[in-house]
Amino acid sequence: MSIASEAAVRNVNVSQCVAEAINLEMDRDASVVMLGEDIGRSGGVFGTTRGLQRQFGPDRVRDTPISEMAFTGMAVGLAMEGYRPIVEIMFVDFIGVCLEQVYNAAAKIPYMTGGAVKMPIVFKTAGGCIGSAAQHSQCLWGLFAHLPGMRIVVPSSPYDYKGMMAAAIDSDDPVVFIEHKGLLLRKAGSFAHGREVPRERYLAALDRAAVLRPGSDVTLVTLSLTVGESLAAAAVLADEGISVEVIDLRSVVPLDFDTICASVAKTGRLLVVDEDYLGFGLSGEIVTGAVERVGTSAVRHVLRHGVPDVPVPAALSLEQQIVPRQASIERAVRKLASRS
């Protein structure tokens, strides 16, 4: 990192990047409105909506009762009226009480109407492990991704948190925007990638993966908080002589198989690191999709490193056994790289 670009890193955390993006969109487009719990007066439990209600008023930044079924459905009605609602589901784990309006209405109405009705809704929600045990630690992007009709985006850097939130609000499709609780309060300067966040409005592509570190031995595909963990692991492994190509997925739906397959065709080894559950999920989808596209002769070895199919436990000693982090990622890469 050069001295000039160090100077461009602002002293903001990721939540402030999200709030900045929403602020700029609400300012330029009066049809953008927000609904959710504790988003107004308190500015969001993670601070991602701080200052918005004071600036745009309680009607456009609506503190709702604990009634997710009603306010997710409100977004559907508002979208049919020409509004662009942003709905906050405080923790992604809470989606169980209101998935109905998300997957049966918002996600399907554009299709069910033959394209006549758009649903430009952003469902923003926080996932990820930070020691909050089984009901407040899930990622669940694989759950949403299984259901057709929603773009699923999962940024990993301050630059993408702001730019992808702006693009999500700008999108005419329903977008599920999944934040990681372990990233929201981190300062931009603490990131190894995407740490420079312009003050002005910009849009970051919603449907492209990014190669963050080139390598030749192993393709490591990951997303969200484990991107930073994987970059740190790759630096350690480079000293051991293992060259890891790290791909930040950014988008779960659609998956950027062009970028994934170009890398796998080069390395022949594919590791998926996923903080979501292993079974029936993203990691299996990526491995299968890559093999279908480049063939079993090109993909010589595959490995998945994710949360085994158990709920996330409370005690740190238990959590560390199942949640992918730098040390376990290093072990997974060594295991894969050792196969010839």
């Binding site: 009607d59 609506r62 009603a70 009605g77 508002l78 049966n104 009705v117």
Partner: peptide
């Protein structure tokens, strides 16, 4: 769905009122 006439339906029993509430909130906005 007939958007110009603000008419829509859902096949899920119990899911109509939240959507209607959104239309009512649009009237407020």
């Amino acid at each position: 769905f007939d958007l110009p006439r603000r008419f829509s339906t859902t096949g899920i029993v119990g899911s109509t009122l939240p959507v209607a509430l959104g239309h009512a909130y649009a009237a407020r906005l």
